[in-house]
Design a protein around this nucleic acid. Structure first.
Lengths: 142, 142
DNA sequence: TTTACTGCAAACCGTTTGCAGTTCC
DNA sequence: GGAACTGCAAACGGTTTGCAGTAAA
């Protein structure tokens, strides 16, 4: 996702583009991934010192509602945001240090058994792989 | 999971078995699934009126740490607990009303691509299917 | 008898909200 | 000019914690 991509998509949605919202959007396009709201706030403040926490939360919530930003709720602690919504990918989570790594989806798409679906309309699948990151595996795993 | 199963497993771990812990364990074995801590507290109170919220939280956290209870963090709002840890199953989540339904895992086990694993030790996989439950699909879906 | 567990209440943390003032279009 | 956005600060909801008292082994 590039800034241009995101900002032009947002303009196309007639979203009022303020300095604050631009700052948040710009933070999201770096190589930062899986930031917390607090981290987004801090980074946005380095561009626009007076931006408030409430505005950051408002903006993040709007981006999520628009489908321009994903939420990752796989670990304890504050919610994390995933700007990489354009390509399908899954998450690899370290159960010890809570690191999250994106992985491309190459596996066959899992399916719900017909007889278990029971009228549910399935529109998406999330896959979370759990385990230990290299560092934690070296220290504690086998 | 039957009461006997759970309680005997807990006794085997030399876990001090108090009336409060027994009440929580008994709540978890009903046909209730995906309860919140608050719901567990309420149900436990009908068995043991003086049980406190703190004790419920303590007990739930201990059971999770022991691996006797799962956490389901797929929706907003309070954390939900999943007592059905003995059999592998996945979750079907309604994005509108946040209903969660268990589904048996019949699909082929997803795999992380070798070249994306990068030293990560993968010990488990969670699959969350998202969509609309029958009621919400009838009302809002197509 | 000793150690671990319980209840209470206050603290905590991440997030949301009400409102007066400001800014974008 | 008017609707929409912002900042502040207080409120909120879920969860955790400190501590004095109680109960299991």
């Amino acid at each position: 996702m590039t800034t241009t991509d995101l900002l032009s998509r947002l303009r196309g949605r007639d979203w009022r583009l303020s300095a604050q919202r631009r700052a948040v959007a710009e933070v999201l396009v770096g190589d930062h991934v899986h930031l917390t709201a607090e981290e987004v706030h801090e980074l946005a403040r380095s561009r626009l010192p007076e931006i408030s926490r409430a505005t950051v939360y408002n903006t993040l919530n709007e981006l999520v509602a628009m489908g321009e930003l994903g939420v990752v709720d796989v670990v304890d602690g504050p919610r994390r945001y995933d700007p990489y919504v354009t390509a399908h990918h899954d998450h690899l989570v370290c159960d010890r240090c809570h690191t999250i790594r994106d992985v491309p989806r190459t596996t066959a798409l899992p399916q719900v058994a017909d007889d278990a679906r029971g009228g549910f309309l399935v529109t998406g699948v999330e896959i979370t792989y759990r385990g230990l990151c290299p560092d934690c595996a070296a220290r504690y795993g086998r």
